[in-house]
């Protein structure tokens, strides 16, 4: 554990020293949010009826996009450490063999939490008005943390296996795009049937619905279990696969 924290300290120092990466992580979702709220928001709202706060409506999707692009840095960090031989040096040290991986997981959780915090602050400025109890916000934070954890382990796989930097982060593009194909920004009712079935059942759809209920005080039903099942399922599969790759391929 101590070694994991030492390595975590190193990686947080990297993040603080490369403001460009902080800016790219935060700016893209902020720009998206501005676009949704001010460009599309008006039109979407007229079709959804008056009572809707569109900033509230689109925030869950923006948060998932932010985390999806944030975890790509985990893959890039791992890839660069491997390429520079730093990873080999770390793995030849008398520290627990999984410490270099867990330190990356910890870094991802903390840096994405900071990004989410910034996004929520910006949303508050734009008119985000959460309702519901602090317990529900805690629940929202919990599901976001679980989502980050699952995607981070997914990111570790290309981080360990990629042949180029581009190859290490390209996996995040479809993830960033996925919220568009859900109810994250527009209701699914007007979508063609096939697309609608996908949009209502893909992994991020359930998580978006759950976050929206938790943050806007709606009733929380089945979507808790759907969202948890997706997150835990992806986490388990990605973790086992990543560890398998680490123990076999990394020896090469």
């Amino acid at each position: 554990m101590r070694h994991t924290f030492v390595l975590f300290g190193r990686q947080m120092r990297h993040i603080l020293r490369s403001p460009d990466t902080i800016i790219t992580v935060a700016v893209m979702p902020i720009a998206m949010m501005l676009m949704f709220v001010y460009v599309f928001g008006g039109a979407v709202k007229t079709s959804m009826g008056d009572g809707v706060n569109y900033v509230n409506y689109q925030l869950p999707g923006i948060l998932l996009m932010g985390v999806s692009s944030g975890v790509s840095y985990t893959a890039v960090r791992l890839f660069t450490d491997i390429q520079k031989g730093i990873f080999a040096r770390l793995r030849s040290l008398p520290i627990p063999r999984s410490a270099p991986l867990w330190s990356n997981v910890l870094t991802s959780l903390i840096s994405n939490a900071i990004a989410v915090f910034v996004l929520v602050l910006v949303a508050l400025l734009l008119g985000f008005r959460p309702s519901g109890s602090p317990l529900r916000w805690l629940g929202a934070a919990g599901i976001l943390a679980l989502f980050t954890l699952a995607l981070t382990w997914l990111a570790i796989i290309p981080g360990l296996t990629a042949k180029s930097v581009e190859g290490s982060y390209v996996f995040s593009y479809p993830l960033i795009f996925l919220p568009f194909l859900s109810s994250a920004f527009v209701p699914t009712e007007t979508m063609p049937t096939a697309l609608r079935i996908f949009a209502e059942n893909q992994p991020m759809a359930g998580i978006v619905e759950l976050l929206r209920s938790l943050l806007s005080g709606g009733s929380v039903g089945n979507e808790v279990w759907i969202a948890l099942a997706w997150c835990i399922g992806i986490l388990l599969v990605a973790y086992l696969f990543a560890m398998g790759v680490y123990n076999r391929r990394m020896l090469k």
């Binding site: 120092r13 490369s18 520079k84 031989g85 730093i86 040096r89």
Partner: peptide, 10 residues
């Protein structure tokens, strides 16, 4: 290792 494995950011 064969290539200097120092952390350039530190």
């Amino acid at each position: 290792g064969q290539f200097a494995a120092v952390d350039g950011m530190l």
